[in-house]
Simulated assay, not measured.
Amino acid sequence: MSGRSDRQRVTSADVAREAKVSRATVSYVLNDSPRQKIPEDTRRRVREAAARLGYAPSAAARSLRRGRSDIVLGLLPDWPIEHVLGRLVQQLTDALAQHELTFLVHSAAHPARPLREVWKALTPAAVLALDAFPEAEAEAGLMRAAGIEVVMAVHGPVRSGHRSPLVSEEPIGTAQARYLVQAHRRLGYAYPDVAGLGALAGPRLDGVREVCAGLGLPDPDVRTVPVDPDGAVEAVKAWRAADPPVSGICAYNDAVALAVLAAVRSLGLRAPQDLAVIGVDDIPGAALAQPPLTTIVRDTDTIARGLVCRIVDALDGVQVSADPIQEPLWVHVRVSA
Rank of each mutant, 00 (worst) to 15 (best):
V21C: 07
P171S: 08
G188Q: 04
A314G: 00
K37E: 01
D32Q: 13
K20S: 10
A235P: 05
E139Q: 15
G216I: 05
R265V: 03
P124Q: 10
W330H: 15
L288Q: 13
E169G: 03
V331W: 06
L130Q: 13
R23A: 12
P272H: 06
A177M: 09
R209T: 12
T294E: 08
A337G: 15
Q326F: 01
Q91G: 01
R35M: 01
E137M: 14
C212V: 02
D221F: 11
S168A: 07
A108S: 14
H332N: 15
V46P: 06
R47Q: 07
Q176V: 02
T174K: 09
V280K: 03
A51H: 13
P244H: 05
T174V: 13
R44L: 06
A19Y: 09
V236F: 08
G161S: 06
A95F: 07
A183H: 07
H99I: 04
C212S: 08
V297Y: 07
F103W: 14
A201M: 02
G207H: 14
E170N: 05
L88W: 06
T102V: 11
W330Y: 13
K37H: 08
L30A: 03
D230I: 09
V46L: 13
P80S: 03
G67L: 11
S266N: 01
V26F: 08
D230V: 10
V29L: 05
R87W: 00
G67N: 01
A314W: 03
V211A: 00
E234H: 12
A177I: 01
E169R: 13
S58F: 11
S247C: 00
R265S: 10
S69G: 08
A213Y: 03
Q36R: 11
C309K: 15
G156E: 11
D41N: 04
R62Q: 14
V236P: 12
A183N: 05
V264K: 15
L275R: 11
G141I: 13
E117K: 15
A59N: 01
E135Y: 02
